[in-house]
Amino acid sequence: MCTMIVEKVSVTGVAKGGGNWFPIARVNVGYDHPFRLPLEHAVTLDFVNEAQGPGARVAVELTPQSAQQLLDTLRDVLEQGAAAEAA
């Protein structure tokens, strides 16, 4: 099925794709058909800069389990970082 589940989050950062770094303004986080991962559904992360056109995109497709592990790790790393900054 096409879930059409997608959430957009505005971000400030840069990404590297096609050998070049470019500023990113948004991450589109979806749960839908992946393009490449051999699953019916996957967690899709598109790091994009719409102002630079559709090609300004770094795409990641993860199994739901991997996405959860990534989420946990991001949270853990942010906590470690916050602790380090406070020290």
Binding site: M4, G30, D32, F35, D46, P54, G55
Partner: peptide, 19 residues
Amino acid sequence: RDGDGTPEDVAAQVRADGG
């Protein structure tokens, strides 16, 4: 009308915008 690029890149943008 949603721009030019690889079919995947354009489709990803359209999907993010709700189809």
